[in-house]
Design a protein around this nucleic acid. Sequence first.
DNA 1: TATATTTCTTAACTTAAGTTAAGAAATACG
DNA 2: CGTATTTCTTAACTTAAGTTAAGAAATATA
Lengths: 192, 192
Amino acid sequence: MKDILLDFIAKYITLTEEEKDAILPMDIFHTVTKGTILLREGQYSKESYFVLKGCIRTYYLLDGEEKTTAFYTEMEALTPNCVVNQTPSEYFISCIEDTVLTISNADKEAEMNSKFPKFEIMCRKMSEELLAKQRFDFDEFKTSSPEQRYRNLLQNRPDLIQRVPQQQLASYLGIKPQSLSRLRARMYEKKS
Amino acid sequence: MKDILLDFIAKYITLTEEEKDAILPMDIFHTVTKGTILLREGQYSKESYFVLKGCIRTYYLLDGEEKTTAFYTEMEALTPNCVVNQTPSEYFISCIEDTVLTISNADKEAEMNSKFPKFEIMCRKMSEELLAKQRFDFDEFKTSSPEQRYRNLLQNRPDLIQRVPQQQLASYLGIKPQSLSRLRARMYEKKS
DNA sequence: TATATTTCTTAACTTAAGTTAAGAAATACG
DNA sequence: CGTATTTCTTAACTTAAGTTAAGAAATATA
């Protein structure tokens, strides 16, 4: 399991055995069961997450309705807005599946940075890449119809369609669950 | 004009007079006229922009149609995806108004970092904040209707509605120009 | 200033998403 | 295993966005 984290880090920087040994005992590994809520609206959390196995989602509660806006699966990191802005969280984070993840915070990051300065360089790179990806995804969303978005998802993250409930997928695609059902029916009858 | 840059930096870090003096002669200030294209699809650029005065936009050319996805005005920074990913640009960047901006690149950033290490800390902070904002905007977009998005824009960036052509605003809102016209007509007849 | 060009608005029609509701399918759980 | 609960699908109807086209308004330019 811990190899996933090291593999991920290896994409950005090269670690010595010493450094690897420094990371693992940091007590950042956690196993959480399906349905666990990691963060609630209104909380002032300082925790960042990195998914090693499983799937978590962020969702807003608007007019009593859950609006899912993002999913994080293996090798994906999430620092909630509330951590960055030091404001109460506007959304919830919950586990869609039994999930193994690392939970970190500013103190632990500082510890990492002092143990090996490369770490900061890695974070910078990750942050930049994430920003670029985020912007690309947003652009793609803006310039696509719901059907195109669904086709994109099929193309790029087919696993999500299997592992995530449709109602959550729907709001992720910016539509209602009924519309997603209909859209899919439309697509599959076109094909035949 | 250069004060705008210093004011912006002051939001993140405190500069000594020496440091201020180090920044200004770096030859990063440029004035570009309305209509200038700073970056074209396909180019491998390494330049980052920071708008001091004026407005620039990013747009994709899809099926011969311009799809505007973002605007950058005073005090906003843009590092194009192609710079981060080292890939050809997927979009264009052009000036909507006569614009004053700084144009920077990795070399100049390195120069800055060596001149005062605080600079790197600032970039990290900015990057994190930007990521949080970007995610928030995306979430808001996903969970809103075109009309809500327009109302949001009226609320949060009313200047854009004045300074940006409607067809560009429309794709920024994820709809067609005709739909924006109609949407506005609908809104204003409701009010009366 | 007059004319050309671009941008914006309006309208009629088409397509697809939102809404409400009911039943089917899948899942949870006693 | 069977029942309860949740999730998904389907359908009919409403609302709004996409499309096509034409004319008005604004802007650029000769």
